[in-house]
Design a protein around this nucleic acid. Structure first.
Lengths: 343, 343
DNA sequence: CTTTCTTATTTAACGTGTAAAGGAAAGGTA
DNA sequence: TACCTTTCCTTTACACGTTAAATAAGAAAG
């Protein structure tokens, strides 16, 4: 069963190839009857146009790439689902590209763009500590999604969608302080993170200083480099170390819900309870934060809305409706069982 | 900054296009020095061959599609990671295609194959209750991964990788019986599932009858059709209903870890405990089954191995090393805190 | 008889790979 | 010296399947 081409269809219909092409692509210069006839023949013979040929001719590809740093992060799953759905709805194809922690996502994007003649790019997660020049090698529109925008980044050249990581982080740590916690440990990102990790960590520091609590370096723990970042496993390993260090604390704030769950597990294994012995606060608002036992106090990010906005902006950029756009979504402090007052 | 073509590179190098092509495609008829020079120029100018043109010429695309039913199922995440990595390693591209619950994955695959000139297909999840004829429309190799193979399916035409769902399910329910449980509820798939769902359910029934326990229809609960299958939410909703029904039971077996977690949550909300009031057993061996509180007794599937074997078989098929292959992996019963003896 | 409109056809690209046909240089052999 | 072989390269030409610009064929209208 070899493949049909547009020429075969044209012959079967007794028309020229352009006519068939017009039928397929809704070109106005075609008689409705002819079009219907052609479409019927196409359907009967299960003809599907060859994508490569189309892309070559059009010299673009109706393809959008989504680049993710840390694909294992379950936070991205519902977002990907939205991307996939919306991109399909617009009759675009969709490439999901995982980027290793130590890989440069911009390099990957540049290669991919040339190779696949992309229409647009979404960057998900990652540090985003990139020089302007490098980004200028990208000739197609792109949107930074859930990448914390710090002052180091010049907003005018980019488009982005995110939440206000600094203030949301501040909010939840502030809440911990209000509960009477003074010794609040934190599991944060590596020192060179200039994005989400930095912002959330800065929020933590600000909340402490607002409450006049002295900053204790020994309560600041970094994720392990050799384990998936923001993962349960990472939270578990770090918390275990923290507990074994003997450093006193009454609450722990982790930069993700997954790490909060890992932290809980480590606490249980040490024979302690949450929240009786330690309060635990997460960030993200994953479904599991509700289902976990105890349910996790967290900052719930509106993932679906963020994803939808990301795609909308990307298509606006593609269709030249805007030059750039920034959207910051509100997030919500959700108080659950994992935190308690010690006053 | 417009795109370079192979002709531009040829001019820059002062050689013919054929030479450049040979350098890129490792053709033997080329001097090593020339090749090195050409490759250097290519690198310096960031030239990347146009994929569409290549695919068109080759009339295939070095693309592998992975079709997933129920993309939200976290069970698939580590598998996708493996697929992506392995496919990239072989210099293939990778398309991830979500298939709605009510969509026919074979139809989707047939379209995709023609449109993108695929090299191979992986089917992940799904019922797979398909007629032979339909599958014969697929002209490229495909592998069914983690799709339970029931007797309804003629194995000789397919390739597959999975675990022995019937016996693994039997094993864990058998374990529950050994703990003294007689009234074991189950959350299973819809009636028309002829694949994984059916096999696991049959395993449940067999275990009961092996232990001489009467089958109680009122303890058999089906997932809700309007909620993501195998999800926490689904397990939660069904268990809530079960608890409210007043039907007595001492243990509950769910067809996935996610549903087990949902079940636990429903039990907690009813003011009961796991495992003191109800034992809960899952299936899959997700990471979260370890981190959950209580940790979940489950059947751990070797996801990574399954995914690796899937890709290996697919490439063997593509390279005509085999005609078809079936691989069944052992799974492991992991006893954790969520189940207890009531003897 | 020209103009306009609608609809269809012809043909030339898009960028790559490859096959054909051949040439130049180097080395070996008679 | 003349001839052959081998290696590496060139030029030319075409093919892959599609789209779009240019073109043409009718028909209707002025």
């Amino acid at each position: 069963m070899e493949r049909l081409t547009i020429i075969d269809i044209a012959k079967l219909c007794g028309v020229g190839v352009t006519t068939v092409s017009r039928a397929i692509n809704n070109h106005p210069d075609i008689n409705e009857e002819t079009k219907a006839m052609v479409m019927k023949v196409i359907k009967e013979n299960h003809y599907v146009p060859n994508n490569s040929a189309r892309n070559l001719k059009r010299s673009d590809s109706k393809t959008i790439a989504v680049l993710i740093k840390g694909i294992s992060n379950p936070f991205f799953s519902p977002m990907i689902k939205v991307f996939e759905k919306e991109i399909q709805r617009k009759k675009y194809s969709f490439i999901l590209q995982r980027v290793d922690e130590n890989q440069d996502e911009i390099e990957v994007a540049i290669e991919l763009e040339k190779e696949k003649r992309l229409k647009g790019i979404v960057f998900l997660g990652g540090l985003f500590s990139h020089s302007q020049e490098k980004l200028q090698q990208l000739t197609v529109p792109f949107v930074l999604s859930t990448i914390g925008m710090t002052e180091e980044i010049d907003l005018s050249d980019y488009s982005s969608v995110s939440v206000d990581d600094f203030n949301e982080s501040l909010k939840i740590v502030d809440y911990l302080c209000d509960l009477g916690h003074q010794k609040i440990a934190v599991i944060t990102a590596s020192e060179d993170d200039v994005s989400i990790g930095k912002l959330r960590y800065e929020g933590y520091k600000k909340a402490l200083s607002d409450h006049g609590i002295a900053y204790n370096e020994r309560l600041v723990r970094r994720m392990k480099e050799d384990i998936d970042s923001y993962s349960m496993e990472n939270g578990y390993a770090v918390t275990k170390e923290l507990l074994e260090s003997g450093e006193e604390f009454t609450a722990i704030f982790t930069l993700s819900d997954s790490m909060a769950i890992g932290a809980c597990k480590a606490i249980f294994e040490a024979g302690k309870r949450v929240p009786e012995d330690y309060s635990v606060a997460g960030y993200d608002g994953l479904d599991i934060s509700f289902y976990y036992n105890p349910s996790i106090t967290t900052i719930k990010q509106p993932v679906v809305e963020i994803a939808e906005a990301t795609i909308k902006i990307l298509f606006d950029l593609i269709n030249k409706k805007v030059n750039h756009a920034h959207q910051i979504f509100p997030a919500e402090l959700i108080v659950r069982e994992s935190t308690r007052s010690i006053l």
